[in-house]
């Protein structure tokens, strides 16, 4: 999992060319940052497949098409299978030196798109699947998804006296992907852009299926100032509520292992979606975090 055999892309040599612009995403959209950076790394010989979700909704409104490279919207459950078809179809026609990438949200990945994604990994399709995780169905108006964290107030998990928001924890997508013995999987955050770029680059140079789970903040859905998008995505990692890791060749690697965490409480309570959390709720969140880190530190050296 070292990147020494790949030419590193850094702020000094990353292309000035834009592949995703003129779209209608909200101010401070983390998902659009994830798409923009990934395409700068992948380049123009890329087919992008996007299921229903924020990035397809804001990028493809006829006649204003926001992708410079080839791009197509898939059905909501069918992004991994359409991308498979694109990849295989192009190969069958004799095309060489191209990549197929999916940009799907958390619901499109962990819920409705999981079956097709599992099938694509099983076939080891030569595709990169990027899940931009803003932790709810944002495009439809902030409803709970399988990646919505415990305690989150969404429009379908209201925070009231009886129930304090979402009652389930985030589905463990990264390890579900790894359990497929996928060619390459990683977690990333738009708060750590160099790490994210490195991982997209690693995926670009991986034969077979890659999965990158990128934490992508959403000011609209999270209730944060738009200018704090990148900062909050960094704090999610620093507080230990998200983590940066890779999986390849049956080995896990923790890319960042902080000695101490940024305050989870501070991270949570600056967001409108967590404002209602009690100390007990936060204790549950911290306990779950600590158990996870204990496991990761022991098993993912």
């Amino acid at each position: 999992m070292n990147n020494t055999d790949i030419k590193r892309i850094t702020p000094k040599n990353i292309t000035d060319k834009e592949f995703f612009y003129g779209h209608k995403a909200c101010a401070g959209c983390g998902g659009s940052i994830a798409v923009r950076l990934a395409l700068k790394v992948l380049g123009e010989r890329t087919f992008a497949v996007l299921p229903a979700g924020c990035m397809s909704a804001v990028g493809f409104i006829f006649p204003q098409m926001a992708f410079v490279n080839n791009a197509i919207i898939s059905t909501f459950p069918g992004s991994a299978s359409m991308a498979s078809g694109v990849s295989v179809g192009a190969r069958a026609l004799g095309l060489k030196d191209y990549k197929t990438v999916v940009f799907a949200g958390d619901g499109g990945t962990a819920d409705i798109g999981l079956q097709a994604l599992s099938g694509a990994i099983d076939r080891n399709e030569d595709i990169i699947y990027v899940c931009y995780d803003n932790e709810a169905y944002m495009n439809t108006g902030i409803q709970k998804s399988g990646l919505t964290p415990f305690g989150t107030k969404t429009t379908t998990t209201p925070a009231g006296k009886n129930i304090h928001g979402a009652q389930s924890f985030k589905k463990n997508m990264f390890e579900i992907m790894a359990a497929h013995e996928i060619a390459y999987a990683a977690t990333a955050s738009i708060g750590y852009p160099q790490d994210y770029i490195d991982k997209i680059n690693r995926a670009k140079h991986t034969k077979g299926t890659s999965f990158i789970h990128v934490y992508a903040s959403c000011p609209t859905g999270w209730g944060i100032p738009t200018e704090t998008t990148v900062q909050i995505a960094k704090e999610a990692v620093d507080s230990g509520l998200f983590y940066l890791a890779e999986y390849q060749n049956r080995k896990f690697k923790l890319n960042k292992n902080p000695k101490s965490f940024f305050s989870a409480k501070d991270y949570l309570l600056k967001q409108a979606r967590f404002k209602h959390l009690t100390d007990d709720d936060i204790n549950i969140i911290e306990q779950q975090r600590d158990e996870k880190w204990e496991y990761m530190r022991e098993h993912w050296k």
């Binding site: 197509i72 069918g78 359409m82 498979s84 078809g85 295989v88 179809g89 079956q115 097709a116």
Partner: peptide, 27 residues
């Protein structure tokens, strides 16, 4: 001389066929 995709459902069979057709290949 064709690629055979072992998709995991009919929904994916059709999604994949659309991907194939969208690059100009016969599905």
């Amino acid at each position: 001389k064709a690629e055979y995709m072992h998709v995991e459902s009919e929904h994916s069979a059709m999604s994949a066929a659309m991907g194939v057709s969208a690059v100009g290949a016969r599905a």
